[in-house]
Structure formats: structure tokens, C-alpha cells
Simulated scan of single mutants.
Amino acid sequence: MAVAVSRDLTVQVLEDVNAVKLTDRQQALRAAIQRGEPKCLGVSQVMLGLMVMSYSIPLHVTDATEVVTLGVPWWTGLTFIVAGAVAIVLDKHCTMKTLRVCLLVSMVSTLLSVIALIIYFVDMDRNPDIVCTYGSCNQHHYAQKLSRGVKASLLIFTLAQTVISAILCCLLFKQRRSFEQYSTLSQGAPPTPITITPPDLN
């Protein structure tokens, strides 16, 4: 905080250099984050989450495999929706705290997406297509074919989510490293100069 005293003993509190620097860096952080378009990535994550959950409904009428018993589409879909909502909030309320929360949620989303991809691959490997014998296919064959088709779609959506979450993590991590040093600055003096007039002692 800078203070100036004039000849008539009036004291003037000038702008704090650190407060100005902090404000400038916060505006730069906001501009940098909005260049990365977290809102677009967030909307994509929410849409993918809704698609994963809605596409998984036909799996409940087929045989219960690892994907269904573990509820993979439901917890991955919810994770995608939460990660997307936090990214949308980051676009509107750009602070270091929100950035850290969004980074953490995106990292969790990426990790869970990778786990879900492994479960989908294992499930599809353990439950291969049933081959028709002598040109006659029973109902179980068609149910298995439907199940594998739905799981393939869910696998593609989850793969897209993994890529989006990883990109968002990289962008946010870069921004956090650039602006981390300014998050510890405390509030400085008021942004406008204040003039304090001494009391009249006569």
C-alpha cells in the first residue's frame, strides 16, 4: 500500500501495486480460460453423459454381463454430467478455486473413463457373438448381437469422453501453473485513491 503526504498534511492512499497486479492477472486468467472454451467442452461432456445413460437402457433387457452388474453406464454418465456442469460453471465464475475444482473433477472423470473402457473391453471379450448353426438363429443370438452393438456405442462415447476430459485437464493444468502464484495474494488497498484530511486543531 502506498501513502502520499502533501504539504498541508493531507494523506492520500494510492492504489496498491499488488492489488492492481492481482486484478490484471485475474482478468488474464479469465481470458486464457475462455480461450480454451471450457463451456463448449462442458456442454459436450453433459451431452455425452446423457447419451451414455440413455443408450444403456436396452442393456437391461439382455443378459446381465459385467457392464450391467457393475452399473458402468450409470456412474460414468453421472460423472460426465458433473464434470461438464463444473466446466460450465468455470466459464461463468472464473476463479482459482473454481479452476482447481474443475481440474480435480476432470481428472476423476478421465480416470473413471479409462476404468470404464477397460470394463467394456473385458466384457466384450468375455461375451462374444453367438454363431448361428445351420442358418437358424435363436432369440439369444439377437439379444447378444443387440448387447454387443450397444456396448460398442457406449465404448465409443466413453472414449470420446476420455479424450475431452484429458484435453480439459491439460488446459486447466497449464492455466493453474501460470496463475498459481497470484492466488496467494491477499486483498490490498481499495482500487481508488482515498484522501484523508487531518482534523482542524484550531
Rank of each mutant, 00 (worst) to 15 (best):
Q12D: 05
S106A: 14
C137Y: 07
Q26H: 09
R7I: 08
I196H: 08
S136D: 13
M47E: 15
T158H: 06
R30G: 07
V82A: 03
I156H: 02
G149E: 14
S178V: 05
C94F: 06
I119H: 11
L103C: 01
V68E: 15
S178A: 14
I88E: 15
A32I: 00
S147V: 08
S56T: 05
Y55A: 08
S44Q: 15
V52W: 02
T79R: 02
A143W: 07
K39R: 15
F157D: 02
A152F: 13
A166E: 02
V82G: 00
K97L: 14
T10Q: 15
V5D: 07
C169L: 08
I130A: 00
L171W: 01
L155H: 10
L50K: 13
P191H: 10
L29F: 05
D16W: 02
Q26K: 12
D91A: 13
Q27S: 09
C40G: 14
L104F: 12
S56K: 02
V43S: 07
L146Y: 00
Q45D: 03
C102A: 15
E66L: 12
V11W: 01
L159M: 12
V13A: 06
V108M: 09
D125S: 11
P128D: 06
V43K: 10
L154N: 04
C132I: 08
T76I: 13
Y182I: 09
L171R: 10
M1W: 05
A83K: 03
R126N: 15
L41S: 12
C94I: 03
V11I: 15
Y55G: 01
I57L: 14
D200V: 08
S183W: 03
L168N: 11
M107W: 03
L168I: 03
P198A: 08
Q161D: 07
L99K: 04
V101F: 06
A116G: 07
D200C: 03
P38R: 04
G71F: 14
C94M: 12
P128L: 05
T133G: 01
L90Q: 11
K21C: 03
P38V: 06
G188K: 05
D16T: 02
V68S: 04
E66F: 08
S178P: 00
E180S: 11
L104E: 13
S113L: 01
T133R: 14
L29Q: 09
K174H: 10
V114E: 13
D63P: 01
A189F: 03
S186Q: 12
L201F: 15
T65L: 03
N202E: 13
L78N: 09
L111T: 13
M51G: 00
G149V: 04
A19G: 10
V150M: 06
N202S: 11
L146H: 04
S109K: 04
T110V: 01
V61D: 07
R7C: 05
I130F: 08
V3G: 02
V114P: 00
D24N: 12
V11C: 08
L14P: 02
V52C: 09
I57C: 00
L117C: 09
L168D: 04
V131L: 04
L154I: 11
V86L: 06
C132D: 14
Q161C: 10
D16A: 04
K151L: 12
V131W: 02
I115A: 08
T158Q: 01
D8I: 01
